[in-house]
Write a protein that binds this DNA or RNA. Structure first.
Lengths: 334, 334
DNA sequence: GAGCGGGATTTTAGCGTTAAAGTAGAGAGT
DNA sequence: ACTCTCTACTTTAACGCTAAAATCCCGCTC
């Protein structure tokens, strides 16, 4: 390993002069600077980031900590990355599997040291657990959990999104809409909020809210969505609409409906949530609540930048607006 | 920040004793150990990972460096993570956008220091550029580029996969199969290899290889796949099969065919490559070349572990076998 | 009771960098 | 000629940790 000291010896200057050249901190005379640069080139010197970090207390790195890397989080990550890089920092992703232990570990003193700031998608931690986190490190929480006031937080308008999607299907003739994955679950505010929206759309339209149409699923996967909807179909419960908690789940519903010979949207209207890249391509085009990944990314990164720049004002709690993107899976679609 | 020195003072021992307790290195008498642990608890001490890294030369972290976070790489990452964690290390993801500059930077001396080992999905770098990388750091390359012998490398049987998929469609009656995204492109061995497989399937069956059926696409996205196939349809070129270079592109083809009123598989058979999670759910089920993400992940991580454990034997070049998963988008499907 | 073995603990010496304070020398002002 | 200032560079002192060597202490042997 080539150290600054090696470059300094080669160039006949002190280590600090090398540091000043490399970091462009204090001005260095051009001939000296050239000698140092020549030595850097000759020896192939590159700074030791760990040493710099220890000494300077800064990593120029931000972590985005997600439950899993695929689907929704993969897409959001790709939006976040350029925003972080635009400020000259690196973005790294870490994975928690959504477990409270992993999320807590990611917020531990030890791990927070590694980053100048952290974006965390909270799935497993509740308000009390988050309240135990004591740190001055810039943190922005994302996700649908309830969080202590002192954290910056960006979440989606879940209830409104679910209401929009459900109301849209009611407006176009559906009367028995399955809420696929829309369970009441204190551990999953997301599903609860989306269920409330589903219910509100019913009440707004003067329709009964029938609990049999709330169908729980084991995990937020397409497989679970398909299996759950196949069970509904097998049970004989009549339905003419499906609101799925996420597009990934909705894709499972698409499969279940196709397998069962039910036509979308003629027999059953279908809407999801997240508006993933794939959603516009799955025939007949999946109507979905658009969570505006890009806007969420900008908001979250903006809050993080502000904190990293030294802002100490009160934390913000942003509810990102949503809109319904209507496609062929509901009537009234393009 | 609480330092080891603070704990040492609180417990009335030397800093080294704290270190020995925390790391369970040298044995420490039980009463002393208990006092140290009590002090750790009382002060909320956690080790400074940066300082440990600088001193011990080890980060217990592995990086998986990918072109982008979504789709294929997101799914593979989720397979890799548990394998790395099983050995007591952390996995972080970094993104290159597929640009040679970013990939080269990820392999720079400075950045490699941050990790005990690196998995890199090569997309942009060619053999010559990789040859300029000089490092003893454990590295495993993934992807379809040509790489210097001294690197461990895991790639897919691209040609064989493409041949399998194409031959399967020929066997079930297709005679004019569009190779969607299967261009000859030195910068993209993946597309070239898959095109060769597409061609070989034709020759094996005694069919002409018609260059008009090789359709380039601008990016490997569903949108590009859909647009390119819509152009083909608009051009009037007759076809009865589509082999798409990736499932993401195939999804675009699904959309294009549906929009154009062409039935799958009755009018047009369709097959893709990668066998993503979504592929089995997109009606009528996407026939796809399965690249065995899990197996690839195990192989790559195995090679990395071997290197990190000190193995210095010759590098291995693994071609991961593929198999065709037949679904409803081709005839003969379930 | 001097010498020895061995476990428990401490001392020493950095890992490679950078913030801050220090020095040396040239030119300007009086 | 004596400060005074300014620029260019160097010295010093950490950042928080750990590998290795050194020391201490105690019981045990002969």
């Amino acid at each position: 390993m080539v150290r600054m000291a090696d470059v300094a010896r080669e160039a006949g200057v002190s280590v600090m002069t090398v540091s000043n050249v490399v970091n462009e901190r204090l001005p260095v005379n051009e001939p000296t600077r050239a000698r140092v640069m020549a030595a850097v080139e000759a020896l192939g010197y590159e700074v030791n980031l760990t040493a710099r970090h220890l000494r300077a207390g800064r990593t120029d790195t931000v972590a985005f900590i997600v439950p899993s890397f695929h689907d929704y989080f993969g897409e959001v990550s790709d939006k976040i990355a350029p925003l972080i890089e635009a400020e000259g920092r690196h973005l790294v992703l870490e994975r928690t599997s959504g477990s409270p232990e992993h999320e807590m570990a990611a917020l531990s003193v030890a791990r927070l040291q590694l980053y100048d700031g952290v974006l965390l998608s909270v799935v497993g931690l509740d308000r009390d657990q988050l309240d135990r986190v004591r740190t001055a490190k810039p943190i922005v929480l994302l996700g649908e959990r309830d969080v202590p006031d002192r954290f910056n937080h960006v979440r989606l308008a879940n209830e409104e999104g679910a209401r929009l999607a459900t109301a849209h299907m009611i407006e176009h003739g559906s009367r028995r809409i399955v809420g696929l994955g829309c369970t009441f679950d204190t551990a999953h505010m997301m599903t609860s909020d989306r269920r409330i929206g589903w219910e509100r759309a019913h009440r707004d339209a003067g329709l009964d809210v029938d609990a049999r149409y709330v169908v729980p699923i084991s995990t937020f996967t397409s497989a679970a969505g398909r299996d759950a909807l196949l069970d509904v179909i097998a049970s004989g419960l009549p339905f003419d609409g499906v609101f799925a908690v996420t597009d990934v789940v909705a894709l499972g519903a698409v499969a279940a409906l196709a397998e069962s010979g039910l036509r979308v949207p003629t027999d059953v209207q279908l809407a999801g949530f997240d508006n993933l890249d794939m959603s516009s391509f799955v025939p007949p085009g999946l109507t979905s609540v658009d969570a505006n990944h890009e806007g969420v990314a900008e908001t979250a990164v903006g809050l993080l930048h502000r904190q990293m720049a030294g802002w100490t004002g009160p934390a913000e709690h942003v509810v990102a607006p949503v809109r319904l993107v209507v496609r062929g899976s509901t009537r009234g679609g393009a």
